[in-house]
Deep mutational scan, measured.
Amino acid sequence: MATDAALRRLLRLHRTEIAVAVDSAFPLLHALADHDVVPEDKFQETLHLKEKEGCPQAFHALLSWLLTQDSTAILDFWRVLFKDYNLERYGRLQPILDSFPKDVDLSQPRKGRKPPAVPKALVPPPRLPTKRKASEEARAAAPAALTPRGTASPGSQLKAKPPKKPESSAEQQRLPLGNGIQTMSASVQRAVAMSSGDVPGARGAVEGILIQQVFESGGSKKCIQVGGEFYTPSKFEDSGSGKNKARSSSGPKPLVRAKGAQGAAPGGGEARLGQQGSVPAPLALPSDPQLHQKNEDECAVCRDGGELICCDGCPRAFHLACLSPPLREIPSGTWRCSSCLQATVQEVQPRAEEPRPQEPPVETPLPPGLRSAGEEVRGPPGEPLAGMDTTLVYKHLPAPPSAAPLPGLDSSALHPLLCVGPEGQQNLAPGARCGVCGDGTDVLRCTHCAAAFHWRCHFPAGTSRPGTGLRCRSCSGDVTPAPVEGVLAPSPARLAPGPAKDDTASHEPALH
Protein backbone atom coordinates (compact mmCIF):
# COMPACT_ATOMS: atom_id res chain seq x y z
CA MET A 1 0.00 0.00 0.00
CA ALA A 2 2.85 2.34 0.77
CA THR A 3 4.19 1.86 -2.76
CA ASP A 4 0.81 2.63 -4.32
CA ALA A 5 0.51 5.82 -2.31
CA ALA A 6 4.04 6.83 -3.25
CA LEU A 7 3.37 6.30 -6.98
CA ARG A 8 0.18 8.35 -6.79
CA ARG A 9 1.99 11.14 -4.94
CA LEU A 10 4.84 11.16 -7.51
CA LEU A 11 2.33 11.38 -10.38
CA ARG A 12 0.67 14.40 -8.78
CA LEU A 13 4.11 15.95 -8.16
CA HIS A 14 5.46 15.49 -11.72
CA ARG A 15 2.15 15.91 -13.58
CA THR A 16 3.02 19.31 -15.06
CA GLU A 17 6.62 18.32 -15.90
CA ILE A 18 5.40 15.24 -17.77
CA ALA A 19 2.77 17.25 -19.66
CA VAL A 20 5.35 19.83 -20.75
CA ALA A 21 7.89 17.14 -21.73
CA VAL A 22 5.38 15.31 -23.96
CA ASP A 23 5.24 17.45 -27.10
CA SER A 24 3.68 14.75 -29.28
CA ALA A 25 0.88 12.28 -28.70
CA PHE A 26 2.82 9.49 -30.38
CA PRO A 27 4.21 7.19 -29.07
CA LEU A 28 3.19 7.73 -25.42
CA LEU A 29 -0.58 8.03 -25.86
CA HIS A 30 -0.72 5.09 -28.24
CA ALA A 31 1.40 2.94 -25.90
CA LEU A 32 -0.96 3.73 -23.00
CA ALA A 33 -3.88 2.60 -25.14
CA ASP A 34 -2.03 -0.58 -26.19
CA HIS A 35 -1.37 -1.53 -22.55
CA ASP A 36 -5.01 -0.88 -21.52
CA VAL A 37 -4.05 2.04 -19.30
CA VAL A 38 -6.25 4.46 -21.27
CA PRO A 39 -9.60 3.23 -22.64
CA GLU A 40 -10.65 3.92 -26.19
CA ASP A 41 -13.02 6.76 -25.38
CA LYS A 42 -10.37 8.55 -23.31
CA PHE A 43 -7.87 8.00 -26.12
CA GLN A 44 -10.15 9.72 -28.66
CA GLU A 45 -10.98 12.49 -26.21
CA THR A 46 -7.28 13.23 -25.63
CA LEU A 47 -6.59 13.36 -29.37
CA HIS A 48 -9.49 15.76 -29.87
CA LEU A 49 -8.29 17.99 -27.02
CA LYS A 50 -4.76 17.94 -28.45
CA GLU A 51 -6.03 19.31 -31.76
CA LYS A 52 -8.00 21.97 -29.96
CA GLU A 53 -5.70 23.22 -27.16
CA GLY A 54 -2.33 21.57 -27.76
CA CYS A 55 -0.45 18.50 -26.60
CA PRO A 56 0.69 19.68 -23.11
CA GLN A 57 -2.84 20.72 -22.07
CA ALA A 58 -4.30 17.47 -23.39
CA PHE A 59 -1.81 15.32 -21.45
CA HIS A 60 -2.27 17.37 -18.27
CA ALA A 61 -5.98 16.65 -18.43
CA LEU A 62 -5.24 12.96 -19.09
CA LEU A 63 -2.93 12.74 -16.05
CA SER A 64 -5.54 14.47 -13.88
CA TRP A 65 -8.04 11.82 -14.94
CA LEU A 66 -5.45 9.08 -14.25
CA LEU A 67 -5.11 10.27 -10.62
CA THR A 68 -8.72 9.24 -10.10
CA GLN A 69 -8.05 5.64 -11.19
CA ASP A 70 -6.88 2.70 -9.11
CA SER A 71 -3.26 1.99 -8.15
CA THR A 72 -2.86 -0.67 -10.85
CA ALA A 73 -3.50 1.87 -13.64
CA ILE A 74 -1.01 4.31 -12.08
CA LEU A 75 1.66 1.58 -11.81
CA ASP A 76 1.12 0.61 -15.45
CA PHE A 77 1.40 4.26 -16.48
CA TRP A 78 4.85 4.62 -14.87
CA ARG A 79 6.03 1.42 -16.56
CA VAL A 80 4.93 2.63 -20.00
CA LEU A 81 6.30 6.13 -19.43
CA PHE A 82 9.84 4.93 -18.71
CA LYS A 83 10.15 2.60 -21.68
CA ASP A 84 13.21 3.13 -23.86
CA TYR A 85 11.41 4.49 -26.91
CA ASN A 86 9.58 7.09 -24.78
CA LEU A 87 12.82 8.19 -23.12
CA GLU A 88 14.40 8.60 -26.56
CA ARG A 89 11.44 10.53 -27.98
CA TYR A 90 10.88 12.80 -24.98
CA GLY A 91 14.28 13.90 -23.70
CA ARG A 92 12.85 15.86 -20.74
CA LEU A 93 11.62 12.63 -19.13
CA GLN A 94 15.18 11.61 -18.22
CA PRO A 95 15.48 14.02 -15.23
CA ILE A 96 12.18 12.66 -13.88
CA LEU A 97 13.54 9.12 -14.11
CA ASP A 98 16.80 10.16 -12.44
CA SER A 99 14.93 11.72 -9.51
CA PHE A 100 12.66 8.70 -9.09
CA PRO A 101 13.05 7.09 -5.64
CA LYS A 102 15.21 4.00 -5.63
CA ASP A 103 12.99 2.16 -3.17
CA VAL A 104 9.98 2.28 -5.51
CA ASP A 105 9.87 -0.90 -7.57
CA LEU A 106 8.09 -0.68 -10.92
CA SER A 107 8.66 -4.33 -11.80
CA GLN A 108 6.02 -5.86 -9.53
CA PRO A 109 3.18 -7.63 -11.37
CA ARG A 110 -0.27 -6.17 -11.66
CA LYS A 111 -2.71 -7.24 -8.98
CA GLY A 112 -5.20 -9.88 -9.92
CA ARG A 113 -3.37 -10.78 -13.13
CA LYS A 114 -0.62 -12.99 -11.78
CA PRO A 115 -0.25 -16.05 -14.00
CA PRO A 116 -0.95 -19.38 -12.31
CA ALA A 117 2.10 -21.27 -11.15
CA VAL A 118 2.90 -24.31 -13.23
CA PRO A 119 4.25 -27.36 -11.40
CA LYS A 120 7.80 -28.19 -12.32
CA ALA A 121 6.89 -31.76 -13.08
CA LEU A 122 4.58 -30.64 -15.88
CA VAL A 123 7.18 -28.48 -17.62
CA PRO A 124 8.66 -30.50 -20.46
CA PRO A 125 12.47 -30.49 -20.62
CA PRO A 126 13.99 -28.51 -23.48
CA ARG A 127 14.74 -30.62 -26.52
CA LEU A 128 18.29 -30.70 -27.69
CA PRO A 129 18.79 -29.82 -31.35
CA THR A 130 19.49 -32.86 -33.44
CA LYS A 131 20.78 -33.45 -36.90
CA ARG A 132 18.11 -35.93 -37.91
CA LYS A 133 16.90 -33.63 -40.66
CA ALA A 134 20.38 -33.31 -42.11
CA SER A 135 20.78 -37.09 -41.92
CA GLU A 136 17.49 -37.62 -43.75
CA GLU A 137 18.50 -35.13 -46.43
CA ALA A 138 21.77 -37.00 -46.88
CA ARG A 139 19.87 -40.27 -47.23
CA ALA A 140 17.63 -38.76 -49.90
CA ALA A 141 20.57 -37.26 -51.78
CA ALA A 142 22.62 -40.48 -51.94
CA PRO A 143 20.31 -42.46 -54.29
CA ALA A 144 20.04 -39.45 -56.59
CA ALA A 145 23.81 -39.29 -56.86
CA LEU A 146 23.95 -42.95 -57.91
CA THR A 147 21.32 -42.56 -60.64
CA PRO A 148 22.91 -42.91 -64.12
CA ARG A 149 22.73 -39.78 -66.25
CA GLY A 150 22.71 -41.56 -69.60
CA THR A 151 23.26 -44.81 -71.43
CA ALA A 152 26.72 -46.33 -71.46
CA SER A 153 28.60 -46.90 -74.72
CA PRO A 154 28.21 -50.24 -76.56
CA GLY A 155 31.75 -51.22 -75.62
CA SER A 156 31.01 -50.91 -71.93
CA GLN A 157 29.31 -53.91 -70.36
CA LEU A 158 28.77 -52.25 -66.98
CA LYS A 159 25.16 -51.07 -66.73
CA ALA A 160 23.45 -50.94 -63.36
CA LYS A 161 20.50 -49.06 -61.97
CA PRO A 162 20.10 -48.89 -58.22
CA PRO A 163 16.66 -49.98 -57.01
CA LYS A 164 14.55 -47.35 -55.34
CA LYS A 165 14.85 -47.45 -51.59
CA PRO A 166 12.24 -46.04 -49.20
CA GLU A 167 13.58 -43.73 -46.52
CA SER A 168 11.97 -45.71 -43.72
CA SER A 169 13.99 -48.81 -44.57
CA ALA A 170 17.12 -49.24 -42.48
CA GLU A 171 18.55 -52.18 -44.42
CA GLN A 172 21.49 -51.74 -46.72
CA GLN A 173 20.82 -51.91 -50.43
CA ARG A 174 23.67 -53.43 -52.41
CA LEU A 175 24.26 -53.37 -56.13
CA PRO A 176 26.01 -56.21 -57.97
CA LEU A 177 28.87 -54.49 -59.75
CA GLY A 178 31.04 -57.51 -60.48
CA ASN A 179 34.42 -58.69 -59.17
CA GLY A 180 33.25 -58.77 -55.57
CA ILE A 181 32.81 -55.01 -55.21
CA GLN A 182 29.81 -53.84 -53.24
CA THR A 183 28.41 -50.36 -52.99
CA MET A 184 27.69 -48.51 -49.80
CA SER A 185 24.36 -47.94 -48.09
CA ALA A 186 22.17 -44.94 -48.78
CA SER A 187 23.63 -43.06 -45.81
CA VAL A 188 27.15 -43.19 -47.23
CA GLN A 189 28.45 -39.85 -48.45
CA ARG A 190 31.44 -40.96 -50.51
CA ALA A 191 32.83 -44.34 -51.57
CA VAL A 192 36.15 -45.24 -53.14
CA ALA A 193 37.09 -48.75 -54.23
CA MET A 194 40.15 -50.14 -52.44
CA SER A 195 42.22 -53.17 -53.24
CA SER A 196 42.06 -55.95 -50.68
CA GLY A 197 45.78 -56.61 -50.94
CA ASP A 198 46.47 -53.29 -49.18
CA VAL A 199 44.30 -54.11 -46.15
CA PRO A 200 46.07 -56.21 -43.50
CA GLY A 201 44.09 -59.30 -42.59
CA ALA A 202 41.85 -59.31 -45.67
CA ARG A 203 41.39 -62.64 -47.42
CA GLY A 204 40.43 -63.59 -50.94
CA ALA A 205 39.29 -61.12 -53.54
CA VAL A 206 37.25 -59.09 -51.07
CA GLU A 207 37.58 -55.39 -51.69
CA GLY A 208 36.73 -52.78 -49.10
CA ILE A 209 35.00 -49.49 -49.65
CA LEU A 210 36.15 -46.31 -47.94
CA ILE A 211 33.03 -44.60 -46.70
CA GLN A 212 31.81 -41.92 -44.40
CA GLN A 213 28.94 -43.29 -42.35
CA VAL A 214 26.32 -40.86 -41.01
CA PHE A 215 24.67 -42.16 -37.87
CA GLU A 216 21.23 -41.38 -36.55
CA SER A 217 22.65 -39.30 -33.70
CA GLY A 218 23.90 -36.72 -36.15
CA GLY A 219 27.60 -37.50 -35.83
CA SER A 220 29.81 -38.78 -38.60
CA LYS A 221 32.60 -41.35 -38.61
CA LYS A 222 34.93 -42.43 -41.38
CA CYS A 223 35.51 -46.17 -41.67
CA ILE A 224 36.26 -48.99 -44.08
CA GLN A 225 33.59 -51.47 -45.13
CA VAL A 226 34.94 -54.95 -45.83
CA GLY A 227 32.10 -57.31 -46.54
CA GLY A 228 29.37 -56.54 -44.05
CA GLU A 229 31.59 -55.10 -41.31
CA PHE A 230 32.99 -51.61 -40.73
CA TYR A 231 36.55 -50.94 -39.55
CA THR A 232 37.91 -47.69 -38.19
CA PRO A 233 40.99 -46.18 -39.89
CA SER A 234 43.19 -46.98 -36.87
CA LYS A 235 43.06 -50.68 -37.76
CA PHE A 236 44.71 -50.04 -41.10
CA GLU A 237 47.67 -47.97 -39.95
CA ASP A 238 50.89 -49.30 -41.37
CA SER A 239 53.91 -47.34 -40.19
CA GLY A 240 56.41 -49.65 -41.89
CA SER A 241 54.95 -49.39 -45.37
CA GLY A 242 57.51 -47.82 -47.68
CA LYS A 243 55.44 -47.92 -50.85
CA ASN A 244 53.06 -45.11 -49.98
CA LYS A 245 52.87 -42.86 -52.99
CA ALA A 246 50.70 -40.08 -51.63
CA ARG A 247 49.03 -37.41 -53.66
CA SER A 248 49.85 -33.90 -52.51
CA SER A 249 47.60 -33.03 -49.50
CA SER A 250 45.55 -35.92 -50.70
CA GLY A 251 42.45 -37.69 -49.72
CA PRO A 252 41.45 -40.64 -51.94
CA LYS A 253 39.79 -39.71 -55.20
CA PRO A 254 38.18 -42.11 -57.71
CA LEU A 255 40.14 -41.93 -60.92
CA VAL A 256 38.34 -44.66 -62.89
CA ARG A 257 34.61 -45.14 -62.76
CA ALA A 258 31.80 -46.45 -64.91
CA LYS A 259 29.04 -44.10 -65.93
CA GLY A 260 26.11 -44.42 -63.56
CA ALA A 261 27.92 -46.12 -60.68
CA GLN A 262 31.40 -46.50 -59.29
CA GLY A 263 33.05 -49.87 -59.56
CA ALA A 264 35.63 -51.98 -61.30
CA ALA A 265 36.12 -52.02 -65.05
CA PRO A 266 34.76 -55.05 -66.93
CA GLY A 267 37.08 -57.91 -67.61
CA GLY A 268 38.75 -57.91 -64.21
CA GLY A 269 40.09 -54.38 -64.46
CA GLU A 270 40.91 -53.14 -60.99
CA ALA A 271 39.81 -49.69 -59.92
CA ARG A 272 42.59 -47.83 -58.15
CA LEU A 273 42.92 -45.37 -55.34
CA GLY A 274 44.52 -41.94 -55.62
CA GLN A 275 47.40 -43.36 -53.57
CA GLN A 276 48.78 -46.87 -53.72
CA GLY A 277 49.73 -49.01 -50.76
CA SER A 278 48.08 -49.16 -47.38
CA VAL A 279 45.24 -46.85 -46.45
CA PRO A 280 46.63 -43.85 -44.51
CA ALA A 281 45.44 -43.31 -40.98
CA PRO A 282 44.42 -39.63 -41.26
CA LEU A 283 41.41 -39.43 -43.55
CA ALA A 284 40.91 -35.67 -43.24
CA LEU A 285 39.58 -33.94 -46.30
CA PRO A 286 42.28 -32.17 -48.33
CA SER A 287 42.56 -28.42 -48.31
CA ASP A 288 43.20 -28.22 -52.05
CA PRO A 289 39.89 -27.31 -53.73
CA GLN A 290 40.92 -29.18 -56.90
CA LEU A 291 40.80 -32.52 -55.09
CA HIS A 292 37.18 -31.90 -54.08
CA GLN A 293 36.11 -31.48 -57.68
CA LYS A 294 33.57 -33.74 -59.31
CA ASN A 295 34.78 -34.96 -62.66
CA GLU A 296 32.47 -35.28 -65.62
CA ASP A 297 30.66 -38.53 -66.37
CA GLU A 298 31.42 -38.49 -70.08
CA CYS A 299 34.55 -38.31 -72.21
CA ALA A 300 35.65 -34.77 -73.05
CA VAL A 301 36.61 -35.90 -76.61
CA CYS A 302 33.78 -38.15 -77.81
CA ARG A 303 31.18 -37.04 -75.21
CA ASP A 304 30.38 -40.70 -74.42
CA GLY A 305 30.41 -42.64 -71.15
CA GLY A 306 32.08 -45.82 -70.08
CA GLU A 307 35.42 -46.46 -68.42
CA LEU A 308 36.99 -43.01 -67.94
CA ILE A 309 40.23 -41.70 -66.49
CA CYS A 310 39.76 -38.47 -64.53
CA CYS A 311 42.19 -35.55 -64.69
CA ASP A 312 43.57 -34.34 -61.35
CA GLY A 313 43.85 -30.75 -62.58
CA CYS A 314 40.42 -30.13 -64.11
CA PRO A 315 36.93 -31.74 -64.08
CA ARG A 316 37.37 -33.44 -67.45
CA ALA A 317 37.51 -37.21 -67.99
CA PHE A 318 38.71 -39.23 -70.99
CA HIS A 319 38.67 -42.69 -72.52
CA LEU A 320 42.12 -44.24 -72.66
CA ALA A 321 41.72 -44.67 -76.43
CA CYS A 322 40.63 -41.03 -76.96
CA LEU A 323 43.86 -39.59 -75.57
CA SER A 324 46.59 -38.43 -77.91
CA PRO A 325 48.68 -40.55 -77.77
CA PRO A 326 46.30 -43.23 -76.42
CA LEU A 327 47.11 -45.03 -73.19
CA ARG A 328 47.03 -48.79 -72.78
CA GLU A 329 46.76 -48.84 -69.01
CA ILE A 330 46.02 -46.46 -66.19
CA PRO A 331 49.18 -44.58 -65.10
CA SER A 332 50.11 -44.59 -61.44
CA GLY A 333 50.18 -41.46 -59.31
CA THR A 334 48.71 -38.10 -60.27
CA TRP A 335 47.64 -37.76 -63.89
CA ARG A 336 46.83 -34.54 -65.74
CA CYS A 337 45.51 -34.03 -69.24
CA SER A 338 47.44 -32.25 -71.98
CA SER A 339 45.55 -28.99 -71.47
CA CYS A 340 46.58 -28.79 -67.81
CA LEU A 341 50.18 -29.68 -68.65
CA GLN A 342 50.30 -27.00 -71.36
CA ALA A 343 48.91 -24.39 -68.97
CA THR A 344 51.57 -25.33 -66.42
CA VAL A 345 54.34 -24.91 -69.01
CA GLN A 346 52.97 -21.51 -70.06
CA GLU A 347 53.07 -20.37 -66.45
CA VAL A 348 56.69 -21.46 -66.03
CA GLN A 349 58.04 -19.94 -69.27
CA PRO A 350 57.27 -16.26 -68.52
CA ARG A 351 59.02 -16.63 -65.19
CA ALA A 352 62.16 -17.93 -66.89
CA GLU A 353 62.13 -15.05 -69.39
CA GLU A 354 61.96 -12.33 -66.78
CA PRO A 355 65.12 -10.14 -66.90
CA ARG A 356 67.43 -10.41 -63.96
CA PRO A 357 67.53 -7.31 -61.79
CA GLN A 358 70.60 -5.16 -62.21
CA GLU A 359 73.14 -5.55 -59.47
CA PRO A 360 73.77 -2.43 -57.40
CA PRO A 361 77.21 -0.82 -57.72
CA VAL A 362 79.88 -2.31 -55.48
CA GLU A 363 80.74 -0.11 -52.56
CA THR A 364 84.30 -0.08 -51.21
CA PRO A 365 85.05 1.68 -47.92
CA LEU A 366 87.95 4.14 -48.04
CA PRO A 367 90.33 4.59 -45.11
CA PRO A 368 89.78 7.65 -42.92
CA GLY A 369 91.24 10.88 -44.23
CA LEU A 370 90.99 10.06 -47.94
CA ARG A 371 88.33 11.52 -50.20
CA SER A 372 87.87 11.89 -53.90
CA ALA A 373 88.35 15.13 -55.75
CA GLY A 374 84.63 15.33 -56.50
CA GLU A 375 83.84 15.32 -52.77
CA GLU A 376 86.30 18.14 -52.24
CA VAL A 377 84.56 20.30 -54.82
CA ARG A 378 81.04 19.56 -53.53
CA GLY A 379 81.67 20.91 -50.05
CA PRO A 380 80.25 24.33 -49.11
CA PRO A 381 82.80 27.11 -49.63
CA GLY A 382 84.35 28.61 -46.56
CA GLU A 383 83.30 25.76 -44.20
CA PRO A 384 85.44 22.90 -42.93
CA LEU A 385 84.04 19.42 -43.53
CA ALA A 386 82.80 17.71 -40.37
CA GLY A 387 83.40 14.08 -39.41
CA MET A 388 86.73 13.53 -41.17
CA ASP A 389 87.52 10.35 -39.17
CA THR A 390 84.41 8.53 -40.37
CA THR A 391 84.80 5.85 -43.03
CA LEU A 392 83.76 7.12 -46.46
CA VAL A 393 82.19 4.92 -49.12
CA TYR A 394 83.51 5.10 -52.65
CA LYS A 395 81.31 3.64 -55.40
CA HIS A 396 82.95 1.95 -58.36
CA LEU A 397 81.04 3.36 -61.27
CA PRO A 398 81.44 2.19 -64.88
CA ALA A 399 84.38 3.79 -66.64
CA PRO A 400 83.34 6.66 -68.95
CA PRO A 401 84.18 6.42 -72.65
CA SER A 402 87.61 7.64 -73.62
CA ALA A 403 87.65 11.33 -74.44
CA ALA A 404 90.06 13.46 -76.42
CA PRO A 405 92.93 15.07 -74.47
CA LEU A 406 92.31 18.45 -72.99
CA PRO A 407 93.31 21.36 -75.21
CA GLY A 408 96.12 23.61 -74.17
CA LEU A 409 95.22 26.42 -71.80
CA ASP A 410 96.70 29.87 -71.60
CA SER A 411 98.03 31.11 -68.33
CA SER A 412 95.25 33.69 -68.25
CA ALA A 413 92.65 30.91 -68.15
CA LEU A 414 94.14 29.66 -64.88
CA HIS A 415 93.98 33.04 -63.25
CA PRO A 416 91.08 32.13 -60.91
CA LEU A 417 93.23 29.36 -59.41
CA LEU A 418 95.85 31.66 -57.98
CA CYS A 419 95.89 35.19 -56.77
CA VAL A 420 99.13 37.12 -57.12
CA GLY A 421 99.96 39.41 -54.25
CA PRO A 422 101.76 42.71 -54.46
CA GLU A 423 105.14 40.96 -54.06
CA GLY A 424 104.37 38.48 -56.82
CA GLN A 425 103.63 35.69 -54.27
CA GLN A 426 100.97 33.09 -55.08
CA ASN A 427 97.91 33.45 -52.86
CA LEU A 428 95.06 30.99 -52.48
CA ALA A 429 91.63 31.57 -53.92
CA PRO A 430 88.77 31.91 -51.38
CA GLY A 431 87.40 28.58 -50.21
CA ALA A 432 90.59 26.54 -50.77
CA ARG A 433 90.91 23.62 -48.30
CA CYS A 434 93.42 20.94 -47.47
CA GLY A 435 92.59 17.64 -49.15
CA VAL A 436 93.47 15.62 -46.00
CA CYS A 437 91.89 17.43 -43.06
CA GLY A 438 89.44 19.62 -44.98
CA ASP A 439 90.50 22.79 -43.13
CA GLY A 440 91.08 25.98 -45.09
CA THR A 441 93.12 27.82 -42.46
CA ASP A 442 96.83 28.51 -43.25
CA VAL A 443 96.90 26.24 -46.26
CA LEU A 444 99.78 26.19 -48.73
CA ARG A 445 99.65 25.97 -52.50
CA CYS A 446 101.61 23.29 -54.34
CA THR A 447 103.83 24.92 -56.98
CA HIS A 448 103.55 21.83 -59.15
CA CYS A 449 99.81 20.85 -59.18
CA ALA A 450 98.30 24.00 -57.58
CA ALA A 451 96.57 21.91 -54.85
CA ALA A 452 95.96 23.34 -51.37
CA PHE A 453 97.55 21.42 -48.49
CA HIS A 454 98.95 21.65 -44.97
CA TRP A 455 102.59 20.76 -44.54
CA ARG A 456 101.82 18.94 -41.28
CA CYS A 457 99.12 16.84 -42.99
CA HIS A 458 101.23 15.76 -45.96
CA PHE A 459 104.53 15.39 -44.08
CA PRO A 460 103.66 14.34 -40.52
CA ALA A 461 107.15 12.92 -39.92
CA GLY A 462 108.45 16.42 -39.19
CA THR A 463 110.31 17.07 -42.43
CA SER A 464 111.53 20.64 -42.51
CA ARG A 465 109.70 22.87 -44.93
CA PRO A 466 111.87 24.43 -47.66
CA GLY A 467 111.62 28.15 -48.14
CA THR A 468 110.68 28.11 -51.82
CA GLY A 469 109.24 25.62 -54.30
CA LEU A 470 106.66 24.03 -51.95
CA ARG A 471 105.21 20.79 -53.24
CA CYS A 472 102.55 18.49 -51.85
CA ARG A 473 103.20 14.87 -50.94
CA SER A 474 101.96 13.66 -54.33
CA CYS A 475 104.30 15.90 -56.29
CA SER A 476 107.33 15.69 -54.00
CA GLY A 477 108.54 12.50 -55.73
CA ASP A 478 108.12 13.92 -59.26
CA VAL A 479 111.40 14.36 -61.15
CA THR A 480 110.04 17.33 -63.07
CA PRO A 481 111.73 20.49 -61.76
CA ALA A 482 109.52 22.91 -59.88
CA PRO A 483 108.56 26.06 -61.75
CA VAL A 484 110.24 29.30 -60.95
CA GLU A 485 108.65 31.25 -58.14
CA GLY A 486 106.34 33.94 -59.39
CA VAL A 487 104.85 32.00 -62.31
CA LEU A 488 101.06 32.14 -62.18
CA ALA A 489 100.36 28.57 -63.19
CA PRO A 490 102.07 25.40 -64.32
CA SER A 491 102.52 24.82 -68.03
CA PRO A 492 99.48 23.50 -69.88
CA ALA A 493 101.27 20.27 -70.71
CA ARG A 494 101.12 19.33 -67.03
CA LEU A 495 97.32 19.36 -67.13
CA ALA A 496 97.05 16.61 -69.74
CA PRO A 497 95.84 13.29 -68.28
CA GLY A 498 98.52 10.73 -67.75
CA PRO A 499 99.20 7.60 -65.73
CA ALA A 500 99.14 8.17 -62.02
CA LYS A 501 100.77 6.24 -59.22
CA ASP A 502 98.77 4.15 -56.79
CA ASP A 503 99.29 6.51 -53.87
CA THR A 504 98.17 9.57 -55.85
CA ALA A 505 94.99 8.18 -57.39
CA SER A 506 92.76 10.24 -55.14
CA HIS A 507 94.56 13.58 -55.72
CA GLU A 508 93.70 14.97 -59.10
CA PRO A 509 94.09 18.62 -60.10
CA ALA A 510 91.05 20.41 -58.72
CA LEU A 511 89.82 23.81 -59.81
CA HIS A 512 88.91 26.19 -56.96
Rank of each mutant, 00 (worst) to 15 (best):
T3N: 07
T3L: 13
R8W: 01
R8H: 00
R8L: 01
R9L: 03
L11Q: 05
L11F: 02
L11T: 01
R15F: 02
R15G: 00
T16H: 00
E17H: 03
E17G: 01
V22L: 04
L29N: 02
L32G: 01
D36H: 00
V38W: 00
D41R: 02
E45M: 00
H48R: 15
L49W: 01
K50F: 01
K52W: 00
E53F: 05
P56M: 00
Q57C: 01
Q57F: 03
A58F: 02
F59V: 08
H60S: 01
L63H: 01
S64Q: 00
L67S: 01
Q69C: 02
D70K: 15
S71D: 15
A73P: 06
L75T: 15
D76C: 04
F77E: 04
F82P: 00
K83R: 01
Y85P: 00
Y85G: 00
N86C: 03
N86M: 14
Y90I: 01
Y90E: 00
R92S: 03
L93H: 01
I96H: 11
I96T: 00
S99M: 11
F100P: 10
K102R: 15
K102I: 15
K102H: 00
V104A: 01
L106R: 02
S107W: 15
Q108M: 15
Q108I: 00
K111Q: 01
K111G: 08
R113I: 15
K114T: 13
P115T: 05
P115D: 02
P116E: 08
P116T: 04
P116D: 04
A117H: 13
A117V: 03
V118L: 09
K120C: 13
K120H: 09
K120V: 10
L122P: 05
L122F: 14
V123Q: 14
R127P: 07
R127K: 07
T130H: 05
K131A: 03
K133Y: 01
K133F: 01
A134F: 13
E137G: 05
E137H: 04
A140P: 15
A142C: 10
P143E: 15
A144D: 03
L146C: 05
R149T: 05
G150Y: 15
T151L: 08
A152Y: 13
Q157C: 13
L158H: 09
K159L: 12
K159G: 08
A160E: 01
P162L: 10
P162Y: 15
P163C: 15
K165I: 15
S168W: 15
E171A: 15
E171G: 13
Q172P: 05
Q173S: 14
R174K: 09
P176K: 14
N179G: 10
S185G: 08
S185Q: 07
A186L: 02
A186K: 06
Q189K: 09
M194S: 05
S196A: 05
G197P: 13
V199N: 08
G201S: 07
G204K: 09
A205W: 00
A205V: 03
V206M: 04
V206S: 06
E207K: 02
I209A: 02
I209P: 03
I209N: 06
I209K: 02
L210H: 06
L210A: 05
Q213H: 12
V214S: 04
F215S: 04
S217Q: 04
K221L: 03
K221D: 06
G227S: 03
F230L: 07
F230H: 04
T232D: 13
P233G: 12
S239Y: 14
G240C: 06
N244I: 11
R247A: 06
S250G: 08
P252A: 10
K253N: 07
P254I: 08
R257F: 07
K259D: 00
G260R: 10
A261N: 04
A265L: 13
P266H: 11
L273K: 04
